[in-house]
Design a protein around this nucleic acid. Structure first.
Length: 413
DNA sequence: TCTGGGGTCCTAGGACCC
DNA sequence: TCTGGGGTCCTAGGACCC
C-alpha cells in the first residue's frame, strides 16, 4: 500500500505556528516581489481566493475581509519541511519526498497496521511540529493522491483499499482533480464526455495511449488499482535553476549582468552543496508576458562547458558571455533565469585534454570550499564577487527566520 | 504600477550511422 | 521514370506537478 502524506495549507500553517494571532483567520502568502498568492489558510480558501491570484487585483477584497498577507519565507518553510520529513522517516518505511509539503510512503503490511501507523504519524507531527496532515491510503500512488484529497473533508484520513469504496469514490471524483491530468488532457477528455475518474478508468487503453500518450495510460491503470508509477526514492537531481521576475522592467545590459552574476554565485553554491559539477548552463531572458503593447519575446541559450565545473568564476564568465549573445538592445526585460544541467559527480569528472586551467583544479576546489565555509558561518553575503556586490533588502511583509538564525529566534516569557 | 519559482518526464523531429 | 531500411542520440518544446 501507498500512503500520501500532505501538509494542510502548508505555508500558511507554518506562519501560524509562530504567530498565534494569525490562527483561525484568512491568511495568504505571496510569491516573490509580493506578486501573487501562492498559499492560503483554510479561511482564505473559504473566501474563494484562487491559487495564483495577482495581489494587486485582490488588494481591495483583502481589505474588506481583513485578510492578512505575508511575503514568502522559504527558508522557514524548508526548515519545517525538513523536520516533518525526518519525523516520518523515523518509522523506517521506504519514502519518496514528492514536494516541500508532500511525501509518499510504501508499507507492505495489513490495513489495521497501516491505519494505526497513519494515526501515529498524524498525531506526532501535530504534537511535535504543529502542522496538520492529510493522509491518503491506497494500492497505487495515483489513488493515494486521490484519497488524500478526499481525506481533507474526512477528518484527515481516507483509505481507498476496498474495491467497492473505490468505485463509488471514482464516480464522484472530477477528472481535473486526478493527479497528472492537466488542462490539455482535461480538454480532450471533456470533449469525449469524460467527466469523472471513473469515466476515465473505463476508456479503452488504445484510445488513451493514442490521445494522452504513455503518461495517460499509466494514470488510467493506476486508477484501476494496477501499479504503474513506482516509488522514486533518493533520485539525484538532474538540473537546478534560479529565476526571477523583476518588479520593474530592466532595459540595461549592465543591470541584467549584475543580476546574472548574483544568480551564478547562489546557484554555484547550491551545486557544490549537492555536490555536483555542471556541464551545461542555460541562460534565458523574457519580456513581460502580460504586456498589451509589446509582443512577448523569450530567448533561451544553452552553453556547453569544456569541462564540468562548480567553480564560480568560470561559471560567471560563461553565463555572462551567453547573456551577451541573446541580449537585444531596446527590449525591456521582465524575467531572467539561469539553469545548470547535465550534472555530474565531482569524483566522476571527465577532464578535457586540450583545456588548460590557469588555476589548478585542486586550488579551485579549495577556494570554493573556503568561500562557502565563510558564508555559512557569517551569513550568506559575507563574501561575494566584487562585480555582484549590492545589498538587497528583504520584503517588508516577511516573517522572521525563527528556526534558522540565532538573531531571529523567538523568545518566550 | 502591479501577474512566482523550481522541478520532471515525454515526444517529435533532425542529424547521424551502416 | 525510378533513390531503402533499421537503428541511436540529441534537442526543443510542451505538459504537468506543487
Amino acid at each position: 500500500m501507498y500512503l500520501l502524506i500532505d501538509c494542510d495549507n502548508f505555508f500558511a500553517s507554518v506562519e501560524q505556528i509562530f504567530n498565534p494571532s494569525l490562527r483561525n483567520r484568512p491568511l495568504v502568502i505571496l510569491s516573490g516581489n509580493d506578486g501573487c498568492v501562492v498559499a492560503r489558510s483554510k479561511e482564505a480558501k473559504a473566501l474563494k481566493i484562487p491559487m495564483g491570484a495577482p495581489y494587486f487585483q485582490y488588494k481591495n477584497l483583502f481589505l474588506i475581509h481583513n485578510v492578512h498577507t505575508l511575503s514568502t519565507n522559504h527558508t522557514l518553510y524548508s526548515d519545517i519541511s525538513r523536520r516533518i520529513i525526518s519525523i516520518i522517516q523515523e518509522f523506517s518505511f521506504p519514502t519518496e519526498v514528492y514536494s516541500i509539503d508532500e511525501m509518499f510512503l510504501r508499507v507492505n503490511k495489513d490495513l489495521p497496521f497501516i491505519l494505526d501507523l497513519a494515526h501515529m504519524i498524524r498525531s506526532r507531527v501535530k504534537k511535535w511540529i504543529g502542522i496538520t496532515l492529510s493522509i491518503g491510503i491506497a494500492p497505487t500512488k495515483t489513488l493515494a493522491k486521490m484519497a488524500s484529497k478526499i481525506a481533507k473533508t474526512n477528518n484527515g484520513m481516507f483509505s481507498l483499499t476496498s474495491k467497492e469504496t473505490r468505485n463509488d469514490q471514482l464516480k464522484l471524483f472530477p477528472i481535473e482533480d486526478v493527479w497528472g491530468v492537466g488542462s490539455a488532457a482535461q480538454k480532450k477528455l471533456k470533449a469525449r464526455f469524460i467527466y469523472t475518474a471513473y469515466d476515465f478508468s473505463m476508456c479503452s487503453e488504445e484510445w488513451i495511449r493514442k490521445e494522452l500518450t504513455i503518461q495517460g495510460l499509466r494514470i488510467a491503470k493506476e486508477l484501476r488499482g494496477t501499479e504503474a508509477i513506482t516509488l522514486q526514492s533518493h533520485l539525484p537531481k538532474k538540473s537546478i535553476s534560479i529565476s526571477r521576475t523583476f518588479p520593474r522592467e530592466i532595459n540595461s545590459f549592465s543591470e541584467l549582468r549584475l543580476k546574472l552574476i548574483q544568480f551564478c554565485e547562489k546557484l554555484a553554491c547550491s551545486l557544490r552543496k549537492i555536490p555536483r559539477d555542471t556541464e551545461l548552463l542555460i541562460v534565458s531572458l523574457s519580456t513581460n508576458r502580460f504586456s498589451k503593447e509589446i509582443p512577448f519575446h523569450q530567448k533561451s541559450q544553452p552553453n556547453a562547458l569544456n569541462e564540468a565545473t562548480s567553480f564560480t568564476p568560470t561559471l560567471i564568465k560563461h553565463a555572462v558571455h551567453t547573456l551577451k549573445s541573446i541580449y537585444l538592445d531596446g527590449y525591456s526585460y521582465k524575467k531572467l533565469s539561469l539553469t545548470f544541467t547535465n550534472l555530474v559527480e565531482p569524483s566522476a569528472q571527465q577532464t578535457n585534454f586540450l583545456h588548460n586551467d590557469k588555476i589548478p583544479k585542486s586550488s579551485q576546489k579549495a577556494l570554493m570550499k573556503t568561500l562557502d565555509h565563510i558564508n555559512l558561518k557569517y551569513g550568506s553575503d559575507s563574501i561575494s564577487y566584487a562585480q555582484s556586490r549590492k545589498k538587497e533588502k528583504s520584503p517588508a511583509l516577511r516573517s522572521q527566520e525563527y528556526t534558522t538564525r540565532w538573531d531571529q529566534l523567538l523568545s518566550a516569557q
